[in-house]
Design a protein around this nucleic acid. Structure first.
Length: 202
DNA sequence: CGGCCGATTATCT
DNA sequence: GATAATCGGCCGG
């Protein structure tokens, strides 16, 4: 289990460091997991794309707290998105988990997503992976560094820097420049990940 | 492939 | 009352 110290840095530093780490969810005694393939950073009250730019509200409060906690929020009337709170208290900051490469508990994750065809890359979206891992608002503000947590992170594999691509963040709508174009999205392609994971033997 | 669009409701103003 | 850190279906090239 990754300890709190790992998360205690600004989101633009933590986000790329999370690539290759293992996201683990214990559901009904089963172990569901995947290698993180895509992340986005949301950093500080100055970041107009960050929910916390409006200040402390019931929703954003957790981002003002200590690192290593989950920020799970609801959007578009139907989706839950998982973030990991980063940086120091009073500096609102979080990393959105946008895609994982399924590793353990594939059968149960597929059962959690009955309507999804079992295509090769099927957890390539922030709301897809939360549904497959049965992560919803009940996990908002939970501590990912507690020994009894049913969601936590583990060491995984190391992706070479050459496989990591950056781009602007997705879905920001009418967020103004320069925030719209800041390259705070990091990702590894599903194909590259599969090659490396197979070679490493998981 | 890429673009458009409707679904559906917590959260904020 | 408006908006949304998305998704999946449907269209055209």
């Amino acid at each position: 289990m990754l300890e709190r110290g790992f998360f205690q840095r600004p989101a633009p530093s933590l986000a790329p460091a999370l690539l290759g780490k293992k996201l683990v969810r214990l559901q009904d005694g089963a172990r569901l997991s995947g290698i993180i393939l895509e992340t986005e950073a949301y950093q500080g009250g100055d970041d107009l794309a960050c929910h916390a730019h409006v200040g402390k509200t019931a929703r954003t409060q957790v981002m003002f707290g200590p690192a290593g906690h989950a920020y799970v929020y609801f959007t578009y009337g139907m989706h839950w998105l998982l973030n990991i709170v980063s940086d120091e208290p009073e500096t609102p900051s979080a990393v959105l988990i946008r895609a994982i490469f399924p590793l353990e508990g594939l059968e149960q994750m597929a059962a959690n997503r009955p309507n999804l065809a079992n295509t090769p890359a099927w957890l390539n979206g922030p709301a897809k992976l939360t549904r497959a891992m049965a992560i919803d608002g009940l996990f908002n503000r939970c501590d990912l560094c507690q020994p009894e947590s049913t969601i936590f992170l583990e060491d995984g594999i190391a992706f070479p820097d050459t496989l990591i691509r950056t781009s602007p963040r997705i879905g920001l709508g009418k967020t103004p420049e320069p925030w719209l174009s800041i390259p705070w999205r990091w990702r590894v392609s599903w194909q590259d990940a599969q090659k490396l994971i197979n070679k490493t033997g998981r």
